[in-house]
Design a protein around this nucleic acid. Structure first.
Lengths: 204, 204
DNA sequence: TAATAATTTGACCAACTGGTCAAAGCCACG
DNA sequence: CGTGGCTTTGACCAGTTGGTCAAATTATTA
Protein backbone atom coordinates (compact mmCIF):
# COMPACT_ATOMS: atom_id res chain seq x y z
CA UNK A 1 0.00 0.00 0.00
CA UNK A 2 1.22 3.45 -0.85
CA UNK A 3 1.14 6.22 1.69
CA UNK A 4 -1.93 8.26 0.92
CA UNK A 5 -1.33 11.19 3.21
CA UNK A 6 -4.08 12.73 5.34
CA UNK A 7 -7.73 11.98 4.79
CA UNK A 8 -9.10 14.25 2.10
CA UNK A 9 -12.74 14.52 2.97
CA UNK A 10 -12.94 15.89 6.47
CA UNK A 11 -15.10 18.86 7.37
CA UNK A 12 -12.05 21.06 7.91
CA UNK A 13 -10.44 19.97 4.66
CA UNK A 14 -13.52 20.88 2.69
CA UNK A 15 -13.90 24.24 4.36
CA UNK A 16 -10.26 25.25 4.02
CA UNK A 17 -9.82 24.02 0.47
CA UNK A 18 -12.87 26.01 -0.53
CA UNK A 19 -11.58 29.08 1.28
CA UNK A 20 -8.21 28.80 -0.44
CA UNK A 21 -9.71 28.38 -3.90
CA UNK A 22 -12.02 31.30 -3.31
CA UNK A 23 -9.15 33.47 -2.13
CA UNK A 24 -6.97 32.28 -4.99
CA UNK A 25 -9.67 33.21 -7.48
CA UNK A 26 -9.86 36.67 -5.99
CA UNK A 27 -6.11 37.26 -6.10
CA UNK A 28 -5.14 35.47 -9.33
CA UNK A 29 -8.01 37.03 -11.29
CA UNK A 30 -6.79 40.46 -10.32
CA UNK A 31 -3.03 40.10 -10.65
CA UNK A 32 -2.47 37.09 -12.86
CA UNK A 33 -0.25 34.21 -11.82
CA UNK A 34 3.03 36.06 -11.71
CA UNK A 35 1.62 39.13 -10.04
CA UNK A 36 0.06 37.15 -7.22
CA UNK A 37 1.75 36.05 -4.00
CA UNK A 38 1.02 33.27 -1.58
CA UNK A 39 0.95 35.83 1.22
CA UNK A 40 -1.90 37.65 -0.48
CA UNK A 41 -3.84 34.44 -1.01
CA UNK A 42 -3.18 33.34 2.55
CA UNK A 43 -4.36 36.63 4.01
CA UNK A 44 -7.46 36.59 1.82
CA UNK A 45 -8.20 33.04 2.91
CA UNK A 46 -7.59 33.81 6.57
CA UNK A 47 -4.87 31.17 6.89
CA UNK A 48 -1.14 31.20 7.50
CA UNK A 49 1.13 30.62 4.54
CA UNK A 50 2.45 27.25 5.76
CA UNK A 51 -1.13 26.22 6.32
CA UNK A 52 -1.99 27.05 2.71
CA UNK A 53 0.81 24.77 1.64
CA UNK A 54 -0.58 22.01 3.80
CA UNK A 55 -3.64 21.93 1.57
CA UNK A 56 -1.98 22.68 -1.76
CA UNK A 57 1.50 21.59 -2.78
CA UNK A 58 2.44 24.93 -4.27
CA UNK A 59 1.25 28.25 -5.64
CA UNK A 60 1.09 26.56 -9.00
CA UNK A 61 -1.19 23.83 -7.65
CA UNK A 62 -3.76 26.36 -6.46
CA UNK A 63 -3.71 28.15 -9.79
CA UNK A 64 -3.92 24.94 -11.79
CA UNK A 65 -6.84 23.69 -9.70
CA UNK A 66 -8.68 26.93 -10.41
CA UNK A 67 -7.97 26.77 -14.13
CA UNK A 68 -9.10 23.17 -14.40
CA UNK A 69 -12.41 23.90 -12.72
CA UNK A 70 -12.83 27.00 -14.84
CA UNK A 71 -12.26 25.29 -18.16
CA UNK A 72 -15.17 22.92 -17.61
CA UNK A 73 -17.62 25.74 -16.92
CA UNK A 74 -16.13 27.58 -19.86
CA UNK A 75 -16.69 24.94 -22.50
CA UNK A 76 -20.06 23.72 -21.31
CA UNK A 77 -22.33 26.44 -22.76
CA UNK A 78 -20.89 25.76 -26.22
CA UNK A 79 -21.92 22.13 -25.94
CA UNK A 80 -25.48 23.10 -25.18
CA UNK A 81 -26.04 24.63 -28.59
CA UNK A 82 -28.63 22.41 -30.27
CA UNK A 83 -28.24 21.86 -34.00
CA UNK A 84 -31.92 20.94 -34.26
CA UNK A 85 -33.24 24.06 -32.56
CA UNK A 86 -34.13 27.39 -34.09
CA UNK A 87 -30.83 28.93 -35.25
CA UNK A 88 -31.34 32.49 -34.06
CA UNK A 89 -32.84 31.41 -30.76
CA UNK A 90 -30.03 28.93 -30.14
CA UNK A 91 -27.38 31.57 -30.70
CA UNK A 92 -29.24 34.10 -28.60
CA UNK A 93 -29.59 31.59 -25.79
CA UNK A 94 -25.87 30.87 -25.99
CA UNK A 95 -25.07 34.58 -25.79
CA UNK A 96 -27.39 34.93 -22.85
CA UNK A 97 -25.64 32.11 -21.03
CA UNK A 98 -22.26 33.74 -21.61
CA UNK A 99 -23.55 37.12 -20.50
CA UNK A 100 -24.96 35.59 -17.34
CA UNK A 101 -21.58 34.08 -16.60
CA UNK A 102 -19.97 37.49 -16.96
CA UNK A 103 -22.52 38.94 -14.60
CA UNK A 104 -22.38 36.25 -11.94
CA UNK A 105 -18.81 35.00 -12.26
CA UNK A 106 -16.74 38.01 -13.31
CA UNK A 107 -13.65 36.82 -11.45
CA UNK A 108 -13.64 33.56 -13.34
CA UNK A 109 -13.83 35.56 -16.54
CA UNK A 110 -10.92 37.76 -15.51
CA UNK A 111 -8.86 34.76 -14.42
CA UNK A 112 -9.34 33.33 -17.89
CA UNK A 113 -8.59 36.67 -19.54
CA UNK A 114 -5.38 37.05 -17.57
CA UNK A 115 -4.25 33.58 -18.56
CA UNK A 116 -4.93 34.22 -22.25
CA UNK A 117 -3.37 37.68 -22.33
CA UNK A 118 -0.23 36.26 -20.79
CA UNK A 119 0.03 33.81 -23.63
CA UNK A 120 -1.99 30.91 -22.19
CA UNK A 121 1.15 29.08 -20.99
CA UNK A 122 -0.87 26.42 -19.15
CA UNK A 123 -3.94 26.03 -21.32
CA UNK A 124 -2.57 26.51 -24.80
CA UNK A 125 -2.99 22.80 -25.43
CA UNK A 126 -6.64 22.88 -24.43
CA UNK A 127 -7.24 25.84 -26.70
CA UNK A 128 -5.60 24.16 -29.66
CA UNK A 129 -7.26 20.84 -28.85
CA UNK A 130 -10.59 20.52 -27.12
CA UNK A 131 -11.73 24.09 -27.66
CA UNK A 132 -10.78 24.16 -31.29
CA UNK A 133 -12.59 20.89 -31.98
CA UNK A 134 -15.71 22.15 -30.24
CA UNK A 135 -15.71 25.39 -32.17
CA UNK A 136 -15.12 23.51 -35.41
CA UNK A 137 -18.21 21.44 -34.71
CA UNK A 138 -20.35 24.49 -34.01
CA UNK A 139 -18.98 26.11 -37.15
CA UNK A 140 -20.28 23.20 -39.19
CA UNK A 141 -23.70 23.59 -37.59
CA UNK A 142 -23.79 27.33 -38.27
CA UNK A 143 -22.68 26.82 -41.85
CA UNK A 144 -25.47 24.27 -42.22
CA UNK A 145 -28.02 26.77 -40.97
CA UNK A 146 -26.74 29.34 -43.46
CA UNK A 147 -26.74 26.86 -46.35
CA UNK A 148 -30.36 26.05 -45.55
CA UNK A 149 -31.22 29.74 -45.70
CA UNK A 150 -32.30 29.83 -42.08
CA UNK A 151 -29.80 32.55 -41.19
CA UNK A 152 -27.68 34.91 -43.26
CA UNK A 153 -24.29 33.79 -44.43
CA UNK A 154 -21.76 34.65 -41.76
CA UNK A 155 -18.26 33.53 -40.84
CA UNK A 156 -19.06 31.19 -37.97
CA UNK A 157 -15.68 31.66 -36.31
CA UNK A 158 -15.87 35.42 -36.21
CA UNK A 159 -19.47 35.18 -35.10
CA UNK A 160 -18.38 33.15 -32.09
CA UNK A 161 -15.48 35.50 -31.41
CA UNK A 162 -17.83 38.46 -31.43
CA UNK A 163 -20.14 36.79 -28.94
CA UNK A 164 -17.23 35.95 -26.67
CA UNK A 165 -15.81 39.43 -26.99
CA UNK A 166 -19.01 41.26 -26.22
CA UNK A 167 -20.15 39.11 -23.33
CA UNK A 168 -16.78 38.83 -21.59
CA UNK A 169 -16.14 42.53 -22.03
CA UNK A 170 -18.66 43.29 -19.31
CA UNK A 171 -16.72 41.19 -16.82
CA UNK A 172 -13.13 41.85 -17.91
CA UNK A 173 -13.51 45.58 -18.47
CA UNK A 174 -16.02 46.03 -15.69
CA UNK A 175 -14.15 48.98 -14.22
CA UNK A 176 -14.15 50.86 -17.51
CA UNK A 177 -17.78 50.06 -18.26
CA UNK A 178 -18.88 51.29 -14.87
CA UNK A 179 -16.69 54.38 -15.11
CA UNK A 180 -18.61 55.38 -18.22
CA UNK A 181 -22.10 54.31 -17.21
CA UNK A 182 -21.97 55.74 -13.71
CA UNK A 183 -24.73 54.25 -11.63
CA UNK A 184 -26.50 52.56 -14.51
CA UNK A 185 -26.32 48.77 -14.30
CA UNK A 186 -24.32 47.57 -17.32
CA UNK A 187 -26.27 44.35 -17.63
CA UNK A 188 -29.58 46.15 -17.98
CA UNK A 189 -28.85 47.30 -21.50
CA UNK A 190 -26.26 44.71 -22.49
CA UNK A 191 -28.60 41.83 -23.16
CA UNK A 192 -30.96 43.88 -25.28
CA UNK A 193 -28.13 45.37 -27.31
CA UNK A 194 -26.51 42.01 -27.91
CA UNK A 195 -29.82 40.56 -29.04
CA UNK A 196 -30.47 43.43 -31.46
CA UNK A 197 -26.99 43.05 -32.89
CA UNK A 198 -27.30 39.32 -33.44
CA UNK A 199 -30.80 39.52 -34.89
CA UNK A 200 -29.70 42.25 -37.27
CA UNK A 201 -26.80 40.14 -38.42
CA UNK A 202 -28.47 36.75 -38.60
CA UNK A 203 -32.10 37.27 -39.57
CA UNK A 204 -32.38 36.65 -43.31
CA UNK B 1 19.62 77.89 -10.35
CA UNK B 2 18.33 74.46 -9.50
CA UNK B 3 20.30 71.39 -10.38
CA UNK B 4 18.68 69.97 -13.48
CA UNK B 5 20.52 66.69 -13.72
CA UNK B 6 21.98 65.38 -16.97
CA UNK B 7 21.00 66.74 -20.34
CA UNK B 8 17.84 65.04 -21.54
CA UNK B 9 18.13 65.23 -25.27
CA UNK B 10 21.36 63.54 -26.23
CA UNK B 11 21.60 60.85 -28.88
CA UNK B 12 22.22 58.16 -26.28
CA UNK B 13 19.39 59.34 -24.07
CA UNK B 14 16.94 59.13 -26.92
CA UNK B 15 18.09 55.71 -28.00
CA UNK B 16 18.10 54.18 -24.53
CA UNK B 17 14.85 55.72 -23.39
CA UNK B 18 13.21 54.34 -26.51
CA UNK B 19 14.75 50.92 -25.92
CA UNK B 20 13.53 50.89 -22.33
CA UNK B 21 10.00 51.91 -23.24
CA UNK B 22 9.88 49.31 -25.97
CA UNK B 23 11.13 46.63 -23.60
CA UNK B 24 8.76 47.80 -20.91
CA UNK B 25 5.84 47.57 -23.30
CA UNK B 26 6.83 44.02 -24.17
CA UNK B 27 7.11 42.91 -20.55
CA UNK B 28 4.31 44.89 -18.89
CA UNK B 29 1.80 44.00 -21.61
CA UNK B 30 2.45 40.33 -21.00
CA UNK B 31 2.66 40.18 -17.22
CA UNK B 32 0.95 43.31 -15.96
CA UNK B 33 2.66 45.70 -13.57
CA UNK B 34 2.95 43.40 -10.59
CA UNK B 35 3.98 40.39 -12.62
CA UNK B 36 6.83 42.23 -14.33
CA UNK B 37 10.35 42.68 -13.01
CA UNK B 38 13.02 45.23 -13.71
CA UNK B 39 15.41 42.44 -14.54
CA UNK B 40 13.13 41.26 -17.32
CA UNK B 41 12.79 44.77 -18.72
CA UNK B 42 16.52 45.35 -18.45
CA UNK B 43 17.36 42.13 -20.27
CA UNK B 44 14.81 42.87 -22.97
CA UNK B 45 16.26 46.35 -23.39
CA UNK B 46 19.84 45.09 -23.43
CA UNK B 47 20.85 47.24 -20.48
CA UNK B 48 21.93 46.57 -16.92
CA UNK B 49 19.39 47.14 -14.18
CA UNK B 50 21.21 50.09 -12.61
CA UNK B 51 21.45 51.59 -16.05
CA UNK B 52 17.68 51.32 -16.47
CA UNK B 53 17.30 53.27 -13.27
CA UNK B 54 19.62 55.93 -14.58
CA UNK B 55 17.02 56.73 -17.23
CA UNK B 56 13.86 56.13 -15.21
CA UNK B 57 13.47 56.80 -11.52
CA UNK B 58 11.67 53.54 -10.83
CA UNK B 59 9.73 50.62 -12.23
CA UNK B 60 6.63 52.68 -11.68
CA UNK B 61 8.03 55.55 -13.74
CA UNK B 62 8.52 53.31 -16.76
CA UNK B 63 5.03 51.93 -16.47
CA UNK B 64 3.46 55.33 -15.96
CA UNK B 65 5.30 56.75 -18.97
CA UNK B 66 3.94 53.92 -21.11
CA UNK B 67 0.40 54.39 -19.87
CA UNK B 68 0.46 58.13 -20.47
CA UNK B 69 1.61 57.70 -24.05
CA UNK B 70 -0.94 54.94 -24.55
CA UNK B 71 -3.90 56.94 -23.31
CA UNK B 72 -3.40 59.60 -25.97
CA UNK B 73 -3.43 57.08 -28.81
CA UNK B 74 -6.37 55.42 -27.17
CA UNK B 75 -8.67 58.41 -27.00
CA UNK B 76 -7.77 59.93 -30.35
CA UNK B 77 -9.87 57.71 -32.68
CA UNK B 78 -12.98 58.61 -30.70
CA UNK B 79 -12.34 62.30 -31.31
CA UNK B 80 -12.19 61.74 -35.04
CA UNK B 81 -15.82 60.71 -35.28
CA UNK B 82 -17.49 63.44 -37.33
CA UNK B 83 -21.02 64.36 -36.33
CA UNK B 84 -21.63 65.82 -39.79
CA UNK B 85 -20.54 62.71 -41.70
CA UNK B 86 -22.63 59.75 -42.76
CA UNK B 87 -23.56 57.94 -39.54
CA UNK B 88 -22.95 54.37 -40.63
CA UNK B 89 -19.75 55.23 -42.45
CA UNK B 90 -18.44 57.21 -39.49
CA UNK B 91 -19.02 54.33 -37.12
CA UNK B 92 -17.54 51.84 -39.56
CA UNK B 93 -14.49 54.02 -40.01
CA UNK B 94 -14.09 54.24 -36.23
CA UNK B 95 -14.32 50.47 -35.93
CA UNK B 96 -11.77 50.10 -38.69
CA UNK B 97 -9.36 52.40 -36.89
CA UNK B 98 -9.73 50.40 -33.68
CA UNK B 99 -9.27 47.12 -35.51
CA UNK B 100 -6.13 48.45 -37.18
CA UNK B 101 -4.76 49.38 -33.78
CA UNK B 102 -5.38 45.84 -32.56
CA UNK B 103 -3.59 44.50 -35.58
CA UNK B 104 -0.59 46.80 -35.51
CA UNK B 105 -0.28 47.58 -31.81
CA UNK B 106 -1.45 44.46 -29.99
CA UNK B 107 0.94 45.00 -27.09
CA UNK B 108 -0.48 48.43 -26.40
CA UNK B 109 -3.92 46.86 -26.37
CA UNK B 110 -2.83 44.17 -23.93
CA UNK B 111 -1.09 46.71 -21.70
CA UNK B 112 -4.36 48.59 -21.49
CA UNK B 113 -6.34 45.39 -20.92
CA UNK B 114 -4.04 44.34 -18.10
CA UNK B 115 -4.40 47.71 -16.41
CA UNK B 116 -8.20 47.61 -16.64
CA UNK B 117 -8.55 44.01 -15.51
CA UNK B 118 -6.43 44.78 -12.49
CA UNK B 119 -8.85 47.49 -11.51
CA UNK B 120 -7.30 50.47 -13.35
CA UNK B 121 -5.46 51.66 -10.22
CA UNK B 122 -3.55 54.32 -12.14
CA UNK B 123 -6.01 55.42 -14.79
CA UNK B 124 -9.32 55.16 -13.00
CA UNK B 125 -9.48 58.94 -12.86
CA UNK B 126 -8.98 59.26 -16.61
CA UNK B 127 -11.69 56.70 -17.23
CA UNK B 128 -14.18 58.48 -15.00
CA UNK B 129 -13.12 61.88 -16.33
CA UNK B 130 -11.81 62.45 -19.81
CA UNK B 131 -12.97 59.16 -21.30
CA UNK B 132 -16.43 59.40 -19.84
CA UNK B 133 -16.90 62.94 -21.12
CA UNK B 134 -15.76 61.93 -24.58
CA UNK B 135 -18.11 58.98 -24.70
CA UNK B 136 -20.95 61.11 -23.42
CA UNK B 137 -20.38 63.50 -26.32
CA UNK B 138 -20.38 60.72 -28.88
CA UNK B 139 -23.50 59.30 -27.29
CA UNK B 140 -25.29 62.60 -27.92
CA UNK B 141 -24.20 62.49 -31.55
CA UNK B 142 -25.40 58.90 -31.99
CA UNK B 143 -28.71 59.68 -30.32
CA UNK B 144 -29.06 62.60 -32.70
CA UNK B 145 -28.51 60.34 -35.68
CA UNK B 146 -31.13 57.94 -34.38
CA UNK B 147 -33.64 60.73 -33.66
CA UNK B 148 -33.20 61.94 -37.26
CA UNK B 149 -33.99 58.45 -38.49
CA UNK B 150 -30.58 58.07 -40.10
CA UNK B 151 -29.77 54.93 -38.09
CA UNK B 152 -31.85 52.58 -36.00
CA UNK B 153 -32.41 53.35 -32.36
CA UNK B 154 -29.57 51.84 -30.37
CA UNK B 155 -28.08 52.36 -26.94
CA UNK B 156 -25.03 54.43 -27.85
CA UNK B 157 -23.03 53.29 -24.83
CA UNK B 158 -23.48 49.62 -25.48
CA UNK B 159 -22.81 50.21 -29.15
CA UNK B 160 -19.43 51.69 -28.27
CA UNK B 161 -18.72 48.91 -25.80
CA UNK B 162 -19.44 46.33 -28.46
CA UNK B 163 -17.06 47.98 -30.90
CA UNK B 164 -14.34 48.14 -28.26
CA UNK B 165 -14.96 44.56 -27.24
CA UNK B 166 -14.87 43.11 -30.72
CA UNK B 167 -11.88 45.03 -32.00
CA UNK B 168 -9.70 44.64 -28.91
CA UNK B 169 -10.57 40.97 -28.67
CA UNK B 170 -8.32 40.24 -31.62
CA UNK B 171 -5.33 41.74 -29.83
CA UNK B 172 -6.03 40.74 -26.23
CA UNK B 173 -7.15 37.18 -26.95
CA UNK B 174 -4.80 36.75 -29.88
CA UNK B 175 -3.53 33.41 -28.61
CA UNK B 176 -7.01 31.96 -28.36
CA UNK B 177 -8.10 33.34 -31.73
CA UNK B 178 -5.08 31.87 -33.45
CA UNK B 179 -5.48 28.56 -31.63
CA UNK B 180 -8.91 28.22 -33.19
CA UNK B 181 -8.22 29.64 -36.63
CA UNK B 182 -4.95 27.79 -37.16
CA UNK B 183 -3.07 29.38 -40.01
CA UNK B 184 -5.90 31.63 -41.13
CA UNK B 185 -5.15 35.31 -40.54
CA UNK B 186 -7.69 36.57 -37.99
CA UNK B 187 -7.79 40.04 -39.47
CA UNK B 188 -8.80 38.77 -42.88
CA UNK B 189 -12.33 37.96 -41.80
CA UNK B 190 -12.60 40.27 -38.80
CA UNK B 191 -13.18 43.50 -40.65
CA UNK B 192 -15.85 42.05 -42.91
CA UNK B 193 -17.67 40.44 -40.01
CA UNK B 194 -17.60 43.59 -37.94
CA UNK B 195 -18.93 45.61 -40.85
CA UNK B 196 -21.78 43.16 -41.46
CA UNK B 197 -22.68 43.23 -37.80
CA UNK B 198 -22.75 47.01 -37.58
CA UNK B 199 -24.65 47.47 -40.83
CA UNK B 200 -27.24 44.92 -39.73
CA UNK B 201 -27.70 46.73 -36.46
CA UNK B 202 -27.62 50.33 -37.67
CA UNK B 203 -29.11 50.42 -41.16
CA UNK B 204 -32.74 51.51 -40.81
C1' DT C 1 44.40 66.50 -25.85
C1' DA C 2 42.84 67.60 -21.38
C1' DA C 3 39.17 68.12 -18.65
C1' DT C 4 34.49 68.12 -17.85
C1' DA C 5 30.18 65.94 -18.12
C1' DA C 6 27.46 61.92 -19.40
C1' DT C 7 27.02 57.02 -19.03
C1' DT C 8 27.73 52.37 -17.27
C1' DT C 9 28.62 48.99 -13.92
C1' DG C 10 29.72 45.76 -9.82
C1' DA C 11 28.84 45.37 -5.22
C1' DC C 12 25.55 45.83 -2.14
C1' DC C 13 20.97 46.29 0.68
C1' DA C 14 16.56 45.41 3.00
C1' DA C 15 12.22 43.55 1.93
C1' DC C 16 9.79 39.98 -0.09
C1' DT C 17 9.29 35.50 -2.61
C1' DG C 18 7.86 30.39 -2.65
C1' DG C 19 8.71 26.78 0.12
C1' DT C 20 10.41 23.49 4.26
C1' DC C 21 10.30 21.46 8.74
C1' DA C 22 9.97 20.06 13.38
C1' DA C 23 7.26 20.90 17.08
C1' DA C 24 3.06 22.19 19.06
C1' DG C 25 -2.06 22.19 19.21
C1' DC C 26 -6.40 20.23 18.33
C1' DC C 27 -10.02 16.88 17.43
C1' DA C 28 -12.53 12.52 16.95
C1' DC C 29 -12.99 8.21 18.45
C1' DG C 30 -12.23 4.07 21.31
C1' DC D 1 -10.20 10.85 29.20
C1' DG D 2 -6.47 9.64 26.48
C1' DT D 3 -4.18 8.70 22.41
C1' DG D 4 -3.18 8.76 17.54
C1' DG D 5 -3.65 11.21 13.66
C1' DC D 6 -5.17 15.56 11.54
C1' DT D 7 -4.15 20.53 11.64
C1' DT D 8 -1.58 24.74 12.61
C1' DT D 9 2.35 27.43 13.31
C1' DG D 10 7.00 29.89 14.21
C1' DA D 11 11.43 29.79 12.71
C1' DC D 12 13.93 29.40 8.97
C1' DC D 13 16.08 29.19 4.03
C1' DA D 14 17.85 30.34 -0.50
C1' DG D 15 16.63 33.04 -4.37
C1' DT D 16 14.49 37.23 -6.16
C1' DT D 17 12.81 41.89 -5.82
C1' DG D 18 13.21 47.13 -6.48
C1' DG D 19 16.55 50.25 -5.63
C1' DT D 20 21.29 52.74 -4.13
C1' DC D 21 26.00 54.19 -4.60
C1' DA D 22 30.68 55.09 -5.45
C1' DA D 23 33.83 54.06 -8.76
C1' DA D 24 35.03 53.20 -13.42
C1' DT D 25 34.31 54.11 -18.23
C1' DT D 26 33.11 56.65 -22.23
C1' DA D 27 31.62 60.72 -24.84
C1' DT D 28 31.90 65.82 -25.72
C1' DT D 29 33.90 69.90 -26.21
C1' DA D 30 37.01 73.77 -25.21
Amino acid sequence: MTKLGPKLDTRIQKKNRAAILSAGLMVFSQFGFRGSTLDLVAEEAGLSKPNLLYYFRSKDAIYTALLAKLLEDWLEPLREINADGDPVEELLAYSKRKLDMSQHYPRESRLFANEIIQGAPRIGDVLRGELRELVDEIAVVINGWAAAGRINKVDPYHLIFSIWAQTQHYADFDVQVRAILGKTDPFDGAEHHLEAMLRGLLTP
